[in-house]
């Protein structure tokens, strides 16, 4: 049997007047009233941002100052509300990172569209886009709410890198096949 019959005790007289219950309730609310309140008084007080928080998506550089995004446009593809707009471009041949070949010319994230889902961060093969701890954005116009490439790097800063994939690549290119 999926249900159970619950024995209900008949109410006592005092219970039927509701008075003890009401007094009990008053006691509870009074206790709540004298307790310090729970509200975090933003903006004077700021919440502590836990690790893994999904704030505003930003672009990051590696510790050597190389922009990590190679404009593969996977984030643009995966972004559910189509908030990301990328214009891919080629890195000029005289650039120290010319071996990476590709970097975004323009990179816009429309924060009026972004839903902070974090899929861009998840899909990025270069670990270049991160939802970091910025959670408060405002602007007076729609244009102001579009983060361009410069703004994204300003917000993103530098994050540690586990791989240095492109530096290794360059070293290998310079060493050639001589190792064999």
């Amino acid at each position: 049997m999926s249900f159970k019959t619950v024995e209900r005790k008949p109410l006592s007289f005092a219970e039927r007047t509701y008075v003890p219950q009401i007094l009990g309730g008053l006691k509870t609310t009074f206790k709540k009233m004298v307790k310090p309140n729970e509200t975090l008084e933003y903006p004077e007080a700021r919440p502590t941002i836990p690790p893994g928080y999904r704030g505003v998506p930003t672009l990051v550089k590696d510790p050597n100052g190389r922009e990590k995004c190679v404009s593969c446009q996977l984030c643009e593809f995966v972004c559910p509300p189509k908030a990301i707009r990328i214009k891919p471009g080629e890195i000029p041949a005289d650039d120290p990172t010319a071996h990476v070949e590709k970097a975004p010319q323009e990179f816009d994230i429309d924060m009026l569209r972004c839903i902070y889902c974090g899929l861009c961060q998840e899909v990025c093969p270069e670990e270049a886009i991160w939802l970091q701890n910025v959670f408060s954005l405002s602007g007076y116009t729609r244009e102001e709410m579009v983060n361009n490439k410069a703004k994204l790097y300003e917000l993103g800063g530098t994050l540690p890198d586990d791989h240095y994939k492109w530096d290794k690549k360059k070293a290998a290119e310079e060493a050639g096949n001589g190792g064999h």
Partner: peptide, 10 residues
């Protein structure tokens, strides 16, 4: 104010 305090707000 009182409703706020009872609800844990300022």
């Amino acid at each position: 104010k009182i409703s706020a305090w009872i609800q844990g707000r300022p």
